[in-house]
């Protein structure tokens, strides 16, 4: 007999994580501009107001700084806030809160105080979102000590990583690529937690290591599906980009000696650059020069013909793999 598999979209998985976390801990609350109405943040907050009431999920004025500071103060007073920004671009308003308060709260209290909050930011990438609605600032967040930056790549990952982020006692910037919301996958029903320190090996292989982040994981999978020598590619999903454990990466790159990094973000000062730098300092020798498949060092063009060439495409990865192998 064929067992029916429980398939959820990325949006549904996020919604399930939010609902379950609110059920587990009454100190969890959600706020942000328009989070309780209309599009319901790509349906990720669907049904939460009906279930938990407006005390625990509520709309705010357009005051990103004030909201972020409120989240910080609430977290310091024992609540577990989840603040949502419809586009990461708006988070630029909140750099004072992130850089000067939230990220150093644990440090400047000598580890006595905690800042358990989650800030969900959506990366608009795709369909004409243009210079102010498509970008990602993940690398900038990752630069700041004391912040965790989580970027899920699939529905099952999103649910487990979000639950972990909510119950972690450190501040987490949780970035979601809009391009992933309608992707589907099996997602277990029970609440579960994923270790954000540990990158995930998606495919085991021995010839080339591909390290990918967020939507880059999906692009990489599409590329790998297209090539004959699938089993030769090792694919690593970074999960968290600021303070992850490098062991799996060292091991993989030592084994393969070849590295491609797929990152939906600007190439300069990227996580890709950081990983290559760490490997180089560690003295791990590569057989071929490493390849970064990132966004050009330019703002995002809206015009469709330009935009369609701007973001990394699976064919670009296929080409690099073929060249390297």
């Amino acid at each position: 007999m064929k067992k029916k598999v429980r398939i959820l979209t990325f949006s549904q998985a996020i919604q399930e994580a939010l609902a379950q976390s609110m059920k587990i801990d009454k100190n969890v609350f959600i706020f942000g501009q328009g989070v309780d109405k209309t599009a319901l943040v790509f349906k990720t907050t669907q049904g939460l107001k009906e279930k938990f009431g407006k005390k625990r999920i509520f709309d705010t004025p357009n005051a990103e700084q004030g909201e972020t500071a409120l989240a910080a103060g609430a977290a310091n007073s024992g609540l577990r806030p989840i603040l949502i920004h419809h586009r990461v671009d708006f988070m630029a308003y909140t750099f004072d809160q992130l850089v000067n308060w939230i990220s150093l709260w644990s440090f400047k209290s000598a580890g006595k105080n905690r800042m358990p909050l989650v800030i969900r930011g959506i990366i608009g990438k795709g369909w004409g979102q243009g210079p102010q609605h498509a970008k990602t600032l993940h690398s900038m967040f990752a630069y700041i000590p004391g912040l965790r930056v989580v970027i899920p790549s699939s529905p099952s990952e999103a649910k487990g990583l979000l639950l972990s982020s909510i119950f972690l006692n450190d501040p987490v910037i949780f970035l979601e690529y809009r391009a992933l919301y309608n992707t589907k996958e099996y997602v277990p029903l029970k609440p579960y937690f994923i270790d954000i320190n540990s990158p995930r090996i998606r495919y085991v292989g021995n010839k080339i290591t591909i390290i990918a982040i967020g939507s880059g994981v999906l692009t990489s999978i599409k590329a790998i599906e297209k090539i004959k020598s699938k089993s030769e590619i090792e694919l690593i999903d970074l999960r968290e980009i600021a303070n992850f454990n490098y062991d799996k990466i060292f091991k993989s790159v030592k084994k393969t000696g070849k590295l491609i990094i797929v990152e939906d973000g600007w190439e300069k000062f990227s996580i890709a650059s950081e990983i290559i730098s760490v490997l180089s300092q560690k003295g791990i020798k590569l057989k071929k020069p490493p390849v970064k498949i990132c966004w050009p060092n330019s703002h995002v063009p809206m015009s469709n013909p330009l935009e369609s060439k701007y973001y990394p495409h699976e064919n670009q990865i296929v080409k690099s793999i073929k060249k390297m192998i």
């Binding site: 577990r80 440090f107 580890g111 358990p116 004391g146 972990s164 006692n169 450190d170 320190n197």
Partner: peptide, 10 residues
């Protein structure tokens, strides 16, 4: 080590 707690509430 004081920058992050790496601990969970449960």
């Amino acid at each position: 080590q004081l920058n992050l707690s790496n601990s969970y509430s449960k």
